[in-house]
Design a protein around this nucleic acid. Structure first.
Lengths: 120, 120
DNA sequence: GTAATATAAAACCACTTGGTATAATATTAC
DNA sequence: GTAATATTATACCAAGTGGTTTTATATTAC
């Protein structure tokens, strides 16, 4: 039946929900940018931002839950590093629909041609 | 001064915030998928979902504000079509950091090698 | 041991989000 | 004109988010 057939899809939807939402905050994107240079501790990641440590820590947890960041507890510091694999998931999502979008863009161009030619 | 220097960046951050957040909902991604096949009216877009029309309409507005969907009011129907240009923005964001991420992935692999070899 | 450090946890608050139901607006059909 | 249709607008609600302060927990330094 349909319920079992769509279970994997739902799983992927949840993953993409978490991923895109995690990326939908500039503080978190900035943290990823920082981690792209090198691993860092929670404190180091929080330092550039005008917010309390708990706030930054929560952002980090969102990134972690999305699978974008790994954490290795090393004594009393938590060393965080970027995990780019989930970014691949985002890329695959884009790639999969790019095909259709390109076609749509072409047909849209034709559609617009015989209509009001605004800033499309 | 720094304020003026970062203004363009802030603008882009806002655009990316809206984009990623718009994509962070499976209903909206599903609508984009639908629009990738062909333009559709609000009613047609809302039909497959188990929610009221106003709810679907609001999702559509989020997509519109993110620049992912264009709307052409045609009598009493609003014909919506996908605008893939902003997807290019997402792709550029990914591409820009992929470079660093690839490097990070390599150095991470080395890092993990002389440590506990878990599922990285 | 005590004190300092790095971090998370808990409780709270304002704002946003995703949904609802209902009302309003504009267009088409009769 | 009136009625039906397609859609938005408004008011509302529950849950989620992004922030705070305060408290707790481990670890390191002395």
């Amino acid at each position: 039946m349909k319920g079992t057939a769509t279970r994997g899809k739902v799983k992927r939807d949840e993953r993409l929900d978490r991923l895109f939402r995690a990326l939908g905050d500039r503080t978190r994107r900035s943290m990823l940018r920082r981690l792209a240079r090198a691993p860092a501790t929670v404190g180091e990641l929080a330092e550039p931002f005008d917010m309390t440590l708990p706030a930054a820590s929560k952002h980090l947890r969102v990134l972690e839950r999305a699978g974008l960041v790994n954490r290795r507890i090393d004594g009393r510091v938590h060393r965080c590093s970027l995990d780019s694999r989930q970014l691949g998931e985002v890329r695959r999502w884009l790639d999969h629909y790019q095909r259709f979008w390109d076609e749509t863009l072409a047909s849209l161009a034709r559609h617009v041609a015989d209509d009001a030619g605004d800033d499309s």
